[in-house]
């Protein structure tokens, strides 16, 4: 095919993205670097001296790391279990895992409000069982955020890992066993190393997703803010465009650093060299 047709086909989409995504992003980043016409990192220096912002950033990172680790720890065994299933059963179980993924995040976070609230399911059960007398305050804490985010992103890591685990030839495990490895050793030395690239891809999705999530922290986090809700507050409630732009820039930079580092790690730990 001739090159000019090629560019003609790509041009409309590229133009659209350039005008409405790339240019606004560049302008946003650029606007944070100039004050009264001169170049400055001042706003970032201010941010990183501000203990309120550092607290928010800390909470966000803590919640994201906890969510990612929990998703991996919970997701890996289940994904392994799923990958061993006969196709029909696996299909149904996968469908059940994908269903929440395609359901609105508002709906899913809302469900945890019903469960974790003062008069929610968890407190009711615990009080009925006599374990506690006064309801626990779980809702509107970082813990609630983590629970909500794990619920949000677990399906993502499940389907990523099932895909990777399915692609591992079962004969490899049998071969390891025939060479004298126990089932556990075969799992540890064959299955885990071969699934590391998938684990890293899944971790990127979960970590970046948690880092930038708005709905779940907004509904389950109460007064505890994360970077995304802080950005919204600055832009809409406080109308502080420069601060909001700086937060947006910080979010993008962290996202790209995380993706970059994880991809590096993926390349380094790639068992196939």
């Amino acid at each position: 095919m001739k090159k000019r047709y090629l560019y003609l086909l790509l041009a409309p989409g590229l133009l659209f993205l350039t005008l409405f995504m790339i240019v606004p992003l560049i302008l946003t980043v650029g606007s944070t670097l100039f004050k009264d016409g001169s170049f400055t990192f001042g706003i970032y220096l201010q941010f990183f001296k501000d203990s309120y912002f550092l607290d928010i950033l800390g909470t966000t990172l803590l919640v994201s790391v906890a969510t990612t680790l929990l998703c991996i720890l919970i997701g890996f065994p289940v994904a392994y279990y799923l990958s061993m299933m006969p196709p029909r059963k696996k299909g149904i179980l996968l469908a059940l895992a994908i269903f929440p993924l395609l359901t609105s995040s508002v709906v899913r976070s809302f469900s945890w409000m019903i469960i974790l609230g003062k008069n929610g399911l968890v407190n009711n059960v615990l009080i009925k069982l006599g374990i506690i007398h006064d309801p626990l305050s779980i809702l509107y804490t970082p813990t609630a955020m983590i629970i909500g985010l794990v619920h949000l992103f677990l399906p993502l890591i499940l389907i990523t890992l099932v895909g990777v685990l399915e692609s591992i030839d079962h004969d490899l495990v049998r071969a390891a066993q025939s060479l004298g490895a126990s089932k556990l050793t075969a799992f540890r030395k064959i299955v885990i190393p071969l699934s590391i690239p998938g684990l890293i891809v899944g971790s990127i999705l979960v970590f970046v997703g948690s880092l930038t999530a708005y709905t779940t922290p907004a509904l389950l986090g109460g007064k505890k803010r994360v970077v995304a809700t802080f950005l919204y507050q600055n832009a809409i409630t406080l109308n502080d465009w420069q601060a909001a732009s700086a937060i947006a820039t910080i979010m993008m930079i962290i996202t790209f650093i995380v993706i970059g580092l994880m991809n590096k790690a993926a390349a380094k730990f790639n068992p196939k060299g």
């Binding site: 995504m21 240019v23 302008l27 919204y232 832009a235 947006a248 979010m251």
Partner: peptide, 16 residues
């Protein structure tokens, strides 16, 4: 657009 935080996209759209 899958990688850029949605909240950032929304904000820049509003602002510019």
């Amino acid at each position: 657009p899958l990688l850029i935080p949605g909240i950032v996209l929304g904000f820049t759209l509003l602002k510019y």
